[in-house]
Simulated assay, not measured.
Amino acid sequence: MERPSLEFNLPDTHEEGKLYVVDSLNNLNKLNVCPAESQHSLGMYDSMAGSNAGNQRLFFVTFVLTLTVSLALVSFVIFLIFQTRNEVDQISSRLLSEKKNIEELKKLNNIILKYLKNEQSGIVLNKDKN
């Protein structure tokens, strides 16, 4: 867009005429450079720029909130993982100790069964002798 030159060769007229011509040219330049419709569109542009900045601010706030909530959720999941791991470790150690107890009880049961068999066979032998 070319700007019209503000320098004009004015014919020799009286000072009042010069001022009138310059004033008219200024008015004409204002109409050409900034017509009323463009001033209205400039106002819309300014309001759009303001709303765009507001939208960017809203987007940024939403983004930060989303990151914060995501971080909180991830932290909670990590906490749950550690809690679950601790619980599983406790249950595993209990199961191992119970397994050892069961093995000991099986050994005792076998010893008792052997003893009872021996006692029973001894009773049977005693009955045979009578």
Rank of each mutant, 00 (worst) to 15 (best):
D89I: 15
G43Q: 10
L113D: 06
E37C: 00
L73R: 12
L58F: 11
I111N: 10
L95Q: 06
N26G: 08
F82T: 08
S38Q: 14
E2K: 07
K18P: 02
V88G: 11
I78A: 10
R94W: 09
E16Q: 12
G54T: 04
L65P: 13
I78V: 09
M44H: 13
H14Q: 02
F8C: 00
G54S: 04
M48T: 08
M48R: 12
N109D: 10
T62C: 04
A72Y: 03
S47R: 08
L6G: 15
K129F: 06
S97F: 14
F8M: 06
K127W: 04
E87A: 04
S93N: 11
I112L: 12
E87H: 07
L31P: 04
S51P: 09
G50W: 07
F63A: 00
E119Y: 09
T68G: 12
L108E: 14
G17S: 05
N52S: 13
I112V: 06
N26L: 11
Q39T: 00
L19M: 02
S47K: 12
L65F: 06
V124M: 01
D46T: 08
L108A: 10
A72I: 13
T68L: 03
Y45S: 03
I81P: 06
G122T: 02
N26M: 09
N55E: 11
S41Y: 10
V69P: 01
V33H: 12
F59P: 05
Q56E: 07
N27Q: 10
L105F: 07
H40V: 03
L105V: 04
F79P: 07
Q120Y: 01
K18I: 12
T66V: 04
L25I: 01
E87S: 08
I102C: 02
A53H: 13
G122W: 01
I111D: 14
L80W: 14
E98Y: 15
I111T: 02
E104V: 00
L116F: 02
V21D: 15
L65A: 13
L125I: 12
T66G: 11
D46C: 06
M44W: 12
A49K: 02
N9H: 13
C34S: 05
